[in-house]
Computed example of a mutant assay.
Amino acid sequence: MSPNGSDRSSRRPMRRKLPQVLTAGLILATATGCSYNWEDFPRLGMPTPVTEEAPRILSLWQGSWAAALLTGILVWGLILWATIFHRRSRTKVEVPPQTRYNMPIEALYTVTPLIIVSVLFYFTARDESKLLALSDKPAHTINVVGYQWSWGFNYIEDVPGVEGDAKKDENLASLPDKFIEQFPENAGGVYDAGIPGDRNPQTGNPGPTLWLPKGEKVRFVLSSRDVIHSFWVVPFLMKQDVIPGHTNAFEVTATQEGTFLGKCAELCGVDHSRMLFNVKVVSPERYQAHLKELAEKGQTGYIPSGIEQTDPARNAEKNQL
């Protein structure tokens, strides 16, 4: 029993076990990290970006983690400092002096979080405005249609041998005028659509596949036929909601050929988990050949884009997340 009434003998077994616990933790961390690809570590869990826009998102992600880590180090450091240097066994003080109404300290822990949040808000707003900016004339426009529980893709393109005009097509009439006005002239177009529940990896059925040309800007115009979905291509590092009666849009330029996973990121019903699709990035020549293949299959024109909007909503709508 110590002079101040504490029993230090009960602490000794714990102190003896501490090195053993630390050693076991080090071995466990080393063993689990043997198969880890340390080249992926700087991305902090993010996949490899495959678009020109994705590095901006990755930079914001890394910056947010850096800010959180610095804040954590400061807070943890203060906690450990108080725990070690102001413990009762060291100061021999049963109850330390109680400090109240310290205005400088109160101002510090009020202003500091506001500064942190303001800085994060600034960089987020800056990058969001860049990522959602739309060009005057994108090279390609694809209307992505979400429905329970699959996806449809209207390629609004002037495909040789396909007659029609996307600007006057009734199946696209629910889209806002600001998008329709920028459709290519005489774009008869082609489409591809998945059947709900037809994706089955066990039988080799990949579900619907969205084709994109490498190195050319593509605008996605997102619309829904029923409930809220969310269009997420994993290596694009971003997603956007697909809302009935509200049309969102964003643009990307793919920089790497390959096949990538896409999915719905908004709980939309019983088969939400099966609402998957693939994104296939190919050369511009192969992309044009694929459009001709869809036309040869008879998949010309467009599928219905979504729920009809009132004129005021369609014309006043803003591009927002």
Rank of each mutant, 00 (worst) to 15 (best):
N315L: 15
I180Y: 00
A254S: 10
L74E: 04
S223T: 09
L120V: 12
I156C: 00
E157L: 03
E296N: 10
T141D: 02
E296W: 12
E296R: 11
V281E: 03
G258S: 10
K217A: 11
R286V: 00
C34N: 15
L60A: 05
G77D: 06
E185F: 05
E181M: 15
W149Y: 11
G306C: 12
T71E: 10
I156K: 00
K167S: 08
I243N: 04
L131G: 02
P47M: 00
S9Y: 02
N37I: 06
N205I: 04
Y147P: 13
L267F: 14
P184A: 11
A67F: 14
H140D: 12
V159P: 06
R199L: 07
K280V: 05
A133H: 10
M46H: 02
A295S: 15
F85Y: 14
Y287C: 00
E163V: 15
L261K: 15
V145I: 10
A193F: 13
G45D: 01
L74K: 04
N186P: 14
H272C: 05
S118N: 06
E285L: 01
F153D: 01
G45C: 02
L210E: 03
G63A: 13
Y101Q: 03
R16H: 14
T112I: 09
A133K: 12
G33R: 08
F123P: 09
E163G: 14
A265K: 04
G262C: 11
N4L: 05
L26I: 02
